[in-house]
Amino acid sequence: MAAPRFPDYEPTVPVFLAQVTKRFGEGSDALTAVDSVSFTVAAGEFVSVVGPSGCGKSTLLHVIGGLTDATLGSVHVENETIDGPHPAVGIVFQEESTFPWRSVIDNVAFPLELRGVGRAERHAAASHYIDMVGLHGFEKRHPSELSGGMRQRVSIARTLAAKPRILLMDEPFAALDEQTRLLLGDKVLQIQQQLKQTTLLITHSITEAVQLSDRILIMSYRPGHLKRIVKVDLPRPRTSDIVSSREFGAYIADIWSDLREEASRGLSESERGSE
């Protein structure tokens, strides 16, 4: 399990991270969340980042999304070094992020509204994405009338409506139950295959990572560095049925052996008392 080599810079790569490090605080109190992470994501590729809790995966996504600056290193999206959120990047957050004061269709049409698209046109476009996430018929409802899973689908539809070429998802299904997760995972995969977006998914679920991804990046415990990259050679198109296959189980076991080590490091550190 050799450490990944520093990738060669290819101008056509949608996402490229070069030695990204993120530190919080200064001096002896500094917390290094992400330590010298480098990788690329190819066009149309679905990459997952897995790791134990507290390993900096969310921080990594926030850096790629331009919501926070890297302390060291650089992030390049579509050839440009980023300085704030890149217009080609769409982000789906872990927390509940629908606008409760807007109806479903007005939520999803929001990015189009910002671009000055007219009402009829943007509602038509939004309906398309609402259908895509399987919420047809719920256009006029308000988020408060929907379940958690449905609200997340609205958030996804809203992000998609901005037509991002690169999609970042931060544990979007973390708050949902297992069955809903699997089904929404299917949905996301369908959508990604249809729209051919480059997707980076943060998750703590190995099942989800193997189900959805082309490659899986395994992060170590804090300070989070890239431990290993696993290529998932399962056939496409995939559905949630694949979770019962033998190959699937083999991937899970393989990745878990890496993660267990990291996760138990995290557990024992918190037992020693967090300061």
């Binding site: 926030h62 919501l67 959120p85 509940e96 992020s97 606008f99 929001f110 910002l114």
Partner: peptide
Amino acid sequence: TRRVLIDVSRSFRLTPAQEFWQILLPAAL
């Protein structure tokens, strides 16, 4: 105002005025 809504605003690159009228004010209402 929930932090994630500010993050959404930033991810859509809203101007400060847009952020106020589209997100902060409705959330605070």
